[in-house]
Amino acid sequence: MSIHRVGPGKRMSEISVFNGVLYLAGQVPRETRGRDIREQTAEVLAMIDGLLEGSGSNRSRLLSCQIFLRDMALFASMNEVWDAWVAAGQAPARATVQAALASPGCDIEIVAVAAA
């Protein structure tokens, strides 16, 4: 079975596809860095929507998400946006942890896995 890579770069690919499963690279805010966690979360989720749709999938096909927050004090506010976004009855398996994020000004990074 072959592996298909979308947006391959020197360090990573935006998506790796294997055996009908999409593995998205960690997505961080670009336009909303340094802003409220709600804005950052909405931007990242929109980016995930775009990547999934571009690969013939959508948020209802998410299998799992790993959410990294700069500070767990942001958890409730992030969940407000997440809860409005996630497909009803289709919530993926999920883990949320506090982490030192590599991108300055980013309070969130989300890694997603979805069925194609």
Score class of each variant (00 low, 15 high):
56 G>T: 04
92 P>G: 04
43 E>A: 04
72 M>Y: 05
73 A>I: 11
31 E>F: 09
77 S>P: 02
94 R>E: 13
105 G>I: 07
75 F>C: 08
15 I>D: 00
5 R>I: 07
73 A>P: 04
31 E>G: 05
64 S>T: 13
115 A>L: 08
25 A>N: 05
54 G>W: 06
26 G>W: 01
29 P>S: 09
106 C>A: 15
81 V>I: 12
3 I>V: 14
12 M>S: 12
43 E>G: 02
43 E>T: 05
86 V>D: 07
83 D>T: 14
27 Q>I: 08
18 F>I: 06
66 Q>H: 13
55 S>Y: 01
23 Y>L: 07
114 A>N: 01
53 E>A: 10
4 H>T: 13
36 D>I: 11
3 I>P: 00
48 I>W: 01
107 D>Y: 05
48 I>M: 03
37 I>L: 04
34 G>Y: 09
116 A>M: 11
13 S>F: 02
93 A>R: 15
11 R>E: 15
28 V>E: 05
63 L>R: 15
75 F>R: 09
42 A>P: 01
53 E>Q: 11
21 V>I: 14
75 F>N: 10
82 W>N: 02
45 L>F: 13
90 Q>F: 15
112 A>K: 01
42 A>G: 06
21 V>R: 03
28 V>D: 00
104 P>S: 15
58 N>G: 13
33 R>T: 11
110 I>Q: 01
